[in-house]
Design a protein around this nucleic acid. Structure first.
Length: 941
DNA sequence: GACATCACG
DNA sequence: GACGTACGTGATGTCC
């Protein structure tokens, strides 16, 4: 078939596929020999998905995958530094390159690369040829360097976003049409490819210039006419550099090619070739999916004398067996359960899951228990399924065909508490608490959620559905299918037992398969220690804290709510008066319109949704307009007052009352262990980690957190833990000395930076230094500091420059951390916790976010690790003391202690916290803990 | 369910 | 005068 009108050529940017695959997937290796194959696996998946997705009426007639041959091209002769600042290739990626070529050929797709040319040039050449022959072209890539090719039947397609890129997108990105993209790029340069461009000119300015003068040559010829002197000088002085840039970014349409367009005609894959390749790579799931798609049988996995270890893992290969809901068993008789228990004892481990009536473990009733011992071999024990309904007064009766709860517990308790039998769960803290309420303390445990967290923090979330889809290629039955949603939602005890068996046993099955997959990976990912010392042991500790709960005095809260309500009503009346009529003060939209439209307060700025911003900062600025706009200033001030009370009332004094457990009379939060990427805990339902303290009004809410009679609240908190860790990690002698001497760290910083002796320090200078110290931890920027201190940006930048000058180690730490993240795709805490940074090499504005997060993560994460270690050791250390650990607030632990034991508790707990990093990490800065005590949290803090 | 706002370390 | 920006969380109320 001659290539011509009616033909449609697809050109796939192979290198882009490889890099996306590499960064999207964990570092997978081939089981038999450890060959890194993550990128190849991802590449094959993407290619297969591409093929499956392009079978419709608009299917391509011709297709090719194009690769870069090597990093040296003709552009290096024009400009030796071209792409010179590219980071070194990860060492486990390079050996995968030839395999991606092999994969492309295995899929029976033309695989193209040419020495001395970039893939982009080949794509350009093929595009031109196809277009000239009258055909259409789709370039599958999102690389902006290819956008110059768009037009005349050539479009781009971003396979990740599933979105076509046409003239409009090009205009949005470059401010000019595709035919002028090269001109804009020549001026703006490109830091990623190291194209110099014109210094000080970015895409915005470049687009303006090209729009005004038409094209680059005209612009350079008439550069003398430019009004802005600096811009004019730049264009005249750097004309040569701009022309070189032009040659660098212009794609060549005349790359020598030794094949014809006709040879790219779409061919169906040869099942034998393709399946053999996939099988050799040991992509079991993909092999199966491809075989299904080609309607042939999948080949048997390679069996060439695997090592015993490999054999064991092959047995454990969770993909090997499909999920079969019909195979799950309902256990209703003691003899039946006894048989399962015998199998569990044989195996030495069991996946365990509970079904209940609520997500709140302290109120949930146990409805059933599921167990799994081998993949596909799982059961469900119904215990509390009920029927009846409508009658509000009679308690509903148990459904027939269930086991008696007491009988099941009697059989299971010895297993669940047997130190020789490992209980495997997904988010085991939940099940631990449910069983603890039935007098069973599960141990020992493994937790697949925490394994995932140890290996993949930062890459994705760690819920079961997510993990199952990602790693087992299986979508479990959604709970919504059983319970429904919204108003008509039912509780699990109303689910028919037959449905419950499928759902619940599947959960245990999935958990077991995930465990088999993850367990050996922990070691390879070098996070076994993290999992064993920072994650797993925390489960029972947190479970006990949550079950203990904290006593909250309802009456105090209720009185405060009433007082807030009264005050708010007063403010509201004033606000309506000032506004000239009633409106919903709680609606930022209405408030914005009143302030900026009706009252014409200057400076209203609309956000991306078109609404005025009315955040606290904006309102505070308006309150300073007393002279020019007294009405607006007054209104803003009252709204700020109203908002403060509204927040305190709705989020704290009202909501907290509803969280008092009727059985215990206490508030039981729940900590998520795997929620925050950095290793911090997060507190939910209610969040007890953000109880007010900064404002006097708010702090009084802590007075409602009380110790019962005869007991005392004790709070211990790390002093400046993050700055101490920074001083250690970045190795800053001045900071360390200050901590050693017990000096005021912010005053010391101020003194160093502004050359003010300590005895002449003012609170304002100290405040600025404090902001800088914190800024450093957050990955400082001139803009951010300026906003925080409300000073001009240049001044803020000056502070930062001086800070880096005085403490050069900080600069080095920041640079090293970002470089490490780019090289490895993650950063690490001192204790080896890995936090992945998949966006670190992103281009554009996202890059700043990722960098700052990468700089912050080791500091925040190390502090989180330290307090985790303290918490894990705490129960053992305070065993002889009449005290309970109740809450953790990132750098603070709150205890409830018998009056007589307070001093002993403080001494012991302080010691545990201050030495928490030992012996794993030898900190060069001492950790210091401050203690407080009192009848309530406000007094203790 | 997205967004704006604001509470904490 | 490239871009848009402090890091990490969770809960509440509007509004569509």
């Amino acid at each position: 078939m001659t290539f011509g009108k009616g033909c449609h050529l697809h050109l796939i940017d192979g290198s882009a596929f490889i890099f996306r695959a590499y960064h999207a997937l964990p570092p997978l290796t081939r089981k038999t020999d450890g060959l890194p194959i993550g990128a190849v696996a991802g590449f094959c998946n993407m290619l297969f998905r591409y093929i499956e997705g392009n079978k419709g009426p608009d299917a391509p007639t011709h297709v090719a995958v194009i690769f870069d041959h090597s990093s040296k091209t003709f552009r290096n002769e024009i400009y030796p530094d071209y792409k010179a600042n590219r980071p070194e290739l990860p060492e486990d990626l390079r050996p995968q390159f030839p395999l991606t070529r092999e994969a492309t050929r295995a899929f029976n797709i033309a695989c193209i690369e040419t020495e001395g040319y970039e893939a982009d040039d080949i794509i350009a050449t093929l595009s031109c040829q196809a277009r000239d022959a009258g055909g259409r072209v789709t370039i599958i890539s999102s690389d902006k360097d290819l956008m110059q090719l768009i037009g005349d039947g050539v479009v781009m397609f971003d396979a990740m976003k599933n979105k076509t890129i046409d003239r409009d997108e090009v205009f949005e990105k470059f401010g000019v049409g595709p035919e002028r993209v090269v001109d804009v790029q020549s001026l703006a340069g490109d830091s990623v490819d190291n194209v110099p461009g014109a210094p000080g000119i970015g895409i915005k300015t470049a687009a303006l210039l090209i729009q005004e003068y038409g094209d680059l040559e005209t612009l350079l010829a008439r550069a003398g006419e430019i009004k802005q002197p600096k811009r004019r000088e730049t264009l005249i002085n750097f004309a040569d550099q701009i022309r070189i840039s032009h040659r660098l970014v212009s794609l060549k349409c005349d790359t020598p090619l030794d094949f014809t367009l006709e040879s790219l005609e779409v061919r169906a894959p040869e099942p034998d070739t393709l399946l053999t390749f996939l099988n050799v790579m040991e992509f079991r799931t993909l092999t199966k999916r491809v075989a299904d798609s080609l309607k042939v049988a999948a080949p048997l996995p390679e069996t060439a004398t695997p090592s015993p270890a490999a054999q064991a893992e092959a047995v454990a290969a969770p993909e090997a067996l499909p999920f079969d809901h019909a195979a799950y068993e309902a256990v209703t008789e003691p003899e039946q359960l006894a048989r399962w228990i015998a199998r569990i004892r044989e195996r030495g481990h069991v996946a365990f899951d509970t079904e209940t009536t609520s997500l709140d473990e302290m109120r949930a009733d146990l409805v059933g228990i599921s167990l799994a011992v081998d993949p596909g071999h799982a059961c469900y024990i119904p215990l509390g399924h009920r029927q009846g309904g409508g009658d509000l007064f009679a308690s509903d009766s148990l459904v027939e065909g269930q086991m008696l709860l007491a009988e099941a517990l009697a059989l299971l308790k010895p297993v669940l508490e047997d130190p020789a039998i490992l209980k495997i769960g997904q988010n085991m803290k939940y099940d631990w608490k449910i069983m603890a309420r039935h007098g069973v303390e599960i141990a020992p445990i493994d937790d697949t959620m925490l394994m995932s967290y140890a290996m993949f923090a930062g890459l994705h979330s760690h819920g079961m559905d997510e993990l199952s889809e990602r790693y087992l290629n299986h979508r479990p039955i959604p709970i919504k299918e059983l319970l429904g949603s919204g108003k008509s939602q039912i509780t699990f005890d109303r689910v028919a037992i037959a449905d419950a068996v499928k759902y619940a046993a599947e959960d245990a099955d999935v958990t077991l398969r995930l465990w088999q997959l993850f367990k050996p990976q922990l070691h390879r990912a070098r996070v076994t220690t993290v999992y064993e010392t920072l994650e797993r042991p925390l489960v029972p500790v947190l479970a006990r804290m949550e079950m203990a709960g904290v006593k909250v005095d309802r009456d105090t809260l209720s009185r405060m709510s009433n007082a807030f309500a009264q005050k708010m009503a007063g403010f509201e009346a004033e606000i309506h008066d000032l506004a000239g009529g009633p409106f919903n003060v709680g609606s930022p939209k209405q408030l914005g319109e009143i302030l900026f439209d009706r009252l014409q307060v200057p400076g209203g700025e609309k956000g991306k949704t078109g609404a005025y911003a009315t955040g606290a900062e904006v309102l505070e600025d308006i309150t300073t307009l007393e002279d020019s706009h007294p009405q607006g200033a007054e209104l803003a001030a009252r709204v700020l007052d109203w908002r403060q009370l509204s927040k305190l009332k709705s989020t704290y004094t009202d909501a907290l009352q509803d969280h008092v457990n009727p059985d215990t009379g206490r508030v039981h939060t729940s900590y998520s262990i795997a929620g925050a990427n950095t290793g911090r805990l997060a507190s939910t339902d209610p969040n007890l980690q953000n109880i007010p303290v900064r404002s006097e009004e708010g702090r009084r809410i802590r007075e409602a957190f009380v110790a019962p009679p005869g007991r005392v609240m004790v709070s211990l908190d790390y002093s400046q833990i993050e700055l101490r860790i920074l001083a250690h990690i970045a190795d800053i002698p001045a900071l360390k000395q200050a901590f050693r001497d017990g000096h005021d760290i912010h005053a010391m910083t101020a003194s160093e930076m502004f050359n003010v002796p300590l005895d002449q320090m003012t609170s304002d200078i100290r405040r600025q230094a404090k902001a800088i110290n914190f800024g450093v931890i957050y990955g400082i920027s001139g803009f951010g500091l300026a906003r925080n201190l409300r000073i001009p940006r240049a001044e803020a930048q000056g502070f930062i420059d001086r800070y880096f000058e005085r403490f050069p180690g900080i600069r080095a730490y920041m640079d090293d951390t970002v470089a490490f993240a780019k090289a490895h795709g993650h950063v690490e805490t001192l204790f080896g916790r890995k936090i992945h940074t998949p966006e670190i090499s992103a281009k554009g504005p996202g890059a700043g976010f990722a960098k700052r997060a990468a700089i912050n993560a080791p500091i925040q994460g190390t502090a989180a690790d330290v307090i985790r270690r303290a918490m894990i050791r705490m129960p053992g250390a305070i065993a002889g003391i009449d005290a309970r650990m109740l809450l953790q607030v990132h750098d603070e632990l709150l205890f409830e202690v018998a009056e007589a034991d307070v001093d002993r508790l403080i001494a012991t707990a302080k010691e545990v916290m201050e030495t928490a990093s030992d012996p794993a990490v030898q900190l060069s800065v001492r950790l210091v803990v401050e203690a407080g005590r009192g009848p309530n949290w406000a007094a203790a803090h």
